[in-house]
Structure formats: C-alpha cells, structure tokens
C-alpha cells in the first residue's frame, strides 16, 4: 500500500476501504464501529443513529445547491438510511482567511432552510479560521443524531437472494453538476445537483412494509460503488440491467464527452433501496408519488446465480458481464 495519502484514498472506492481498514479500523475497532452510513447505538429502550460527515466540495456553490445544503443533506440522509428519523445536528466550519462573509451567509441560509425542510434542528456549532491557502474556502463537518423507528433493521449486510434493487431517481446528477461547475472542461448543460434531504422517502417506504433490507444513499463513488459495498457486506451477487438505469440525457451527454460512466458519479439525493421482489410495485408507487422520488426505478436484483461480492450487468446487447469495480480518482478518458 502507498506510504502517503492519495486523492484516490478519498474516492470512495477500493483505496478508501484499504485506508479505513489499515489505519482507522485497526485502531478504532469496537462493537459499534460501523461499515454503514451511521452507527446504531442502544440508549435505554431506544436505539439512536449517530453519524458524521465532512464536506470539502469545490466549488462551494453549484447549480442546485451549495456546500451548506450538501452538509445537511449528507448527514440527514446517512441517518435516514438506518431507518432513523434525523433529529439534531451539529456543524463545524473551517473557514479560509479572506472568504467573503456574504458567501458564508449564503451557505448558512441554505443550511437553515434545508434543516427546516428535513425537520432537523441545528443545536451546536464550531468555527475555526485557517490562514489563506491552508484550506480551500470553506470546509464543513456535520454530525447528527436520529431515533430509529420501532421495528426497523436496515443494513448493507441484509440483502437477500431474490430481493429487488430500487433507486429513487436518475443517477449521477450531482457528480455531473459539480464537474461542470468546476469549468475545467468547457462543457455546459442545464443541469442541477440532485442534492436533497430524503427522510420523507425513507419514512414512507418503512410505513409500507417491515421488509426493507437495505437503504443506502449513493453519494461518493455513485450507485456502482454502493452496489459493490452491499454485495460484499451481504455476501451476495447483484445483477443490474443497463437499460433500466435511470440517467438524465444531459448526464449521458456529459459522460460520453468525458468517457465517464454515470454509475460512478456521485448522487446527493438518491437512495438505493433493497427489499423483497413482492414489495417492488408498492414501493415504487409510494416513492414516485413523493418529491425527489418521481423517477424511482427498479434496476436489478440480488441473486444467488452470481458469485458473492460481485455485481453483474446485463448490457445493451443482452450479454452479462461484471461491472468494473470502481477504483481511485475519476479520470476523464479521451484518447
């Protein structure tokens, strides 16, 4: 393994996992240390979910949101994925000397608005200022606590043979919006990040059935990365159908310009939900009736036909092939 930190260690793929295993897990290991989005902790008769997430998005303002909105959605969604109603959040800012106060206020307004929409309260915060060049404009860390609904047990380790795999909308839009906002490639498209708090979707599906096995938000590394994580945690095979993947045409256009695959582009307002096939229609109908769930679709299934830990794609020509494992930094492929 490498001796220094690489950008790829933050990509959410194999190398992130290596870093976690070798450095963090090795020293932090305890019964509550989790591979899921949030830890589930017993407290009296209740179960709490507890999560934390750092945000360093560049640029901090992008079509469809800003780093403030993102920092609320990220933690709210991590809690929601455990079946926990998000309740309280804290936030810590690291600001770069010289950062305009008007921009900071824009970010904070977005946080307040998003927190309100998500039904959470910001209860504590911290501010540090770093001298110019020590950080890039603004970094935010949010932590959150939520209360698990009574009988809910969701985990990346609970996918079962025969389950259906749903996504709550078109994939890769946040990643595409950020790529464009960086203005490195001269590409323009009217596209907004999918960034949104999603507790209402989780609540709605949990009310429909007790049999939700997995809920994950497909953030860094995209849906492809999340599917590999689930396949590995649950020790199951996963099969998806290329043609059933909901992708906005503009995202497809951007991906074909840069030689990228929307399966590995980040989402910030999309869930992967895994439940028995018999629940599929009911869940899709429920999701599609709600904001941010209109584009929900079934993209494949959990299956014993494939090796545990593998993700297989049925391609446009009807062939089946392994989905390449996401690795490292996303590099546009041109030649």
């Amino acid at each position: 393994m490498d001796q220094t930190v690489l950008l790829a260690h933050g990509g959410g793929g194999v190398q992130t996992q290596e870093l976690i295993d070798r450095i963090f897990k090795a020293h932090f290991a305890n019964p509550y240390f989790t591979a899921d989005d949030a830890a589930v902790l017993p407290l009296g008769h209740e179960r709490l979910a507890f999560s934390t997430d750092g945000f360093i998005v560049s640029p901090p303002f992008f079509p469809g949101g800003n780093i403030g909105k993102l920092s609320i959605c990220g933690t709210v969604n991590d809690l929601a994925c455990m079946g926990a109603q998000p309740l309280w959040l804290t936030c810590a800012f690291v600001l770069e000397e010289g950062f305009p106060l008007a921009d900071l206020e824009g970010i904070v307004c977005a946080m307040a608005e998003t927190a309100k929409a998500a039904g959470v309260t910001l209860v504590a915060g911290d501010t540090k200022v770093a001298s110019k060049g020590q950080v890039d404009k603004v970094f935010i860390t949010t932590s959150g606590i939520g209360r698990l609904l009574g009988n809910v047990h969701t985990s990346g380790a609970l996918a079962r043979d025969g389950d259906a795999i749903l996504v709550t909308g078109d994939i890769g839009r946040h990643g595409a919006a950020i790529l464009l906002a960086r203005e490195e490639f001269g590409i323009e498209a009217e596209i907004e990040s999918d960034c949104a708090p999603l507790w209402h979707l989780v609540q709605a599906v949990l009310e429909k059935t007790d049999e939700i096995h997995v809920i994950r938000d497909a953030t860094r590394g995209g849906v492809g990365t999340v599917l590999y994580e689930i396949a590995s945690q649950s020790q199951v095979g996963i099969e998806i159908r290329q043609e059933d993947l909901p992708v906005d045409p503009r995202v497809s256009g951007i991906c074909s310009m840069l030689g990228l695959d929307p399966l590995y582009l980040a989402c910030e307002g999309r869930l992967v939900i895994i439940a028995p096939h018999k629940e599929q229609d009911r869940l899709l109908a429920t999701l599609r009736a709600l904001p941010h769930g209109e584009g929900a679709a079934c993209i494949g299934s959990v299956t014993g036909r494939h090796k545990a830990g593998s993700v297989v794609v049925e391609t446009a020509i009807g062939a089946k092939t392994l989905l390449p494992r996401p690795t490292g930094e996303l590099l546009p492929r041109i030649c």
Partner: peptide, 9 residues
C-alpha cells in the same frame, strides 16, 4: 455542439 443537452465549443 450539443450531445443530449450537454454543450461545448
């Protein structure tokens, strides 16, 4: 040029 709504010079 326009590819499915993504544009570039």
């Amino acid at each position: 040029i326009d590819a499915q709504g993504a544009r570039r010079e």
